[in-house]
Nucleic acid binder design. Sequence first.
RNA 1: GGCUCCAUAGUUCAAGGGAUAGAAUAGCGGUUUCCUAAACCGUAGAUACAGGUUCGAGUCCUGUUGGAGCUACCA
Length: 593
Amino acid sequence: MQRIEKIIKELTCQAALHSWNATLEEGNVQVQKTRREFEGDFTVVVFPLLKFSKQSPEQTGESLGVYLKRSSDLIEDFNVIKGFLNLVIAQQYWKELLDGALRSPSYGRRVPGEDSPGVMIEYSSPNTNKPLHLGHIRNNLLGHSISRILKATGNRVKQVNLVNDRGIHICKSMLAWQMDGKGEDPLSSGMKGDHLVGKYYVRYDQIYKSQVQTFVENGMSQKEAEAEAEVLIEAREMLRKWEAEDPEVRALWKTMNDWVYAGFDQTYRRLGINFDKTYYESETYKLGKELVLKGLREGVLYQKEDGSVWANLEEEGLDHKLLLRSDGTSVYMTQDVGTAHQRYEESAFDSHIYVVGNEQNYHFQVLAIVLKKLGYAWADKLYHLSYGMVELPEGKMKSREGTVVDADDLMDEMEVTARQMSEELGKLEEFSEEEKRRICRQIGMGALKYFILKVDPRKNMTFDPRESVDFNGNTGPFIQYTYARIRSVMRKGADMHKGTGNEELNKKEVILIRMMHDFPEILSEAAHTLNPSLVANFMYELAKEFNQFYHDYSILSAETAGQVSQRLLIIEAAGNMIESGMELLGIEVPERM
RNA sequence: GGCUCCAUAGUUCAAGGGAUAGAAUAGCGGUUUCCUAAACCGUAGAUACAGGUUCGAGUCCUGUUGGAGCUACCA
């Protein structure tokens, strides 16, 4: 069955040809859903048509309405208010939809095939010197949800992670552990590996600060002291040894990184995310140098007297960018040039998405330009999904002030709150301990994920811990609860299914079906704009609409058997759609809660 | 200083150039012999400021004010 919007557009073009002898494209026809306060299902905005009809808005709407009604059985009636032609769609359309596609768990989804576009998406990209925090959570949830959305819209998606496992920051943790660690490890300390390493990163900072202070007290300037502090010099020396592949340093580095990975794995599992491939910066940081040198030979880059290599981006309205240091070593940009090249060689992606915060806008702008200069046509297949910062009600998270919200702590807290709420409401009394745990985990994680994903990724957002554990209103648990209610009714009504009921649909039922009819468009819009919040907000609207319906009309005690059957079809569709949509957000839905 | 992004009820978020700017939350007032009240209903409350483009501007353009980010031989 063809979608009704498409039919309306086609017929409008026909009408324009017949009535006004004007040729217009379907793209010129604006069809939107009729606002609730007016009679109708879809609305054609007639203002853009006036230049073809050469009539008043009212006359144009009226004559178009007459034409549409006469041309299609699906258009039952119309009315014109100001410049808006409101169309009432025949019940038959909604009923056929309900009997067919709408109830499918895969409604609106497409399955990727061999020749579907290949999308590589990089996200998470943690440093190994400290545990994941709230900012990483947003990154991970976005990356994962976008991956699922892209898969569901027919793309072959490859999820990759790039772990920043080398550099001065890791050396700082290593050094502090050597100084103060007394040999403790995750087992002996009972700490998660990433937290343990993070503890020594903090420890390093304390040692550093106290050394700086001592130097200043002995008459050194602040700036001088900061540059001369012994631990900093030692950390640099350790990095140098790391690069020289000193066995002892490498061994410690490997040990501590492995602790961190074990910790990260746990956090990732809990978040429900996974990667098809993980890249390690220690293996990729040298990549890119050859490409840069080649660019230098070809004259698209230039070299200063000190030997450093640069790209001149003035033509693009930017600055000059360093690509190789005077000692010949690579910088971050060099590495990204290399990894992009490597990935394209590996899988010839049709697009490559980087889920990275907006503080790196400049970096990715430069990356694309540099790749272009180096002659890679695929440079314009790179896309930086630049998401906004997560702030707390009192402002930015600051590690120095201890206001960083730890990812693991946050997840714990969400689950504990779910537990408390469930117990207060007496929701889980008849469940086993294991079931209780599972449901509270689903609810807690659902609340957290929804809270973050409902916001447009590109915008900065405020994370209010108090609000995030609210399970009422526009929240994940609200939608989960709606699902649980649906499933409950379906269990009770399993025997009452008597096939299709051909009953008159009431207003609320039509609204629900019409809303569900939109799901494919929401999906494709979300995929197009890489924006899971569209799916999240749609799920909320749907749940809200469903709850009103549920409140106003009885399903199992409807007046006729036909009505019972028909309503069971509607809630089946709604349940499947909630499950499907929430899956795209990485949120599980419980059968009971 | 330069560049980029942002500004919507007390607060947190919506609104493909289209009708009277929607929700949630906090506040106030209601709904339970009935399929899960983590629900439902009612009430009140917002486009930073000044211009411009348009039949029509929260949305596009210019300026002002306020906020964030970037502007490293860091990543």
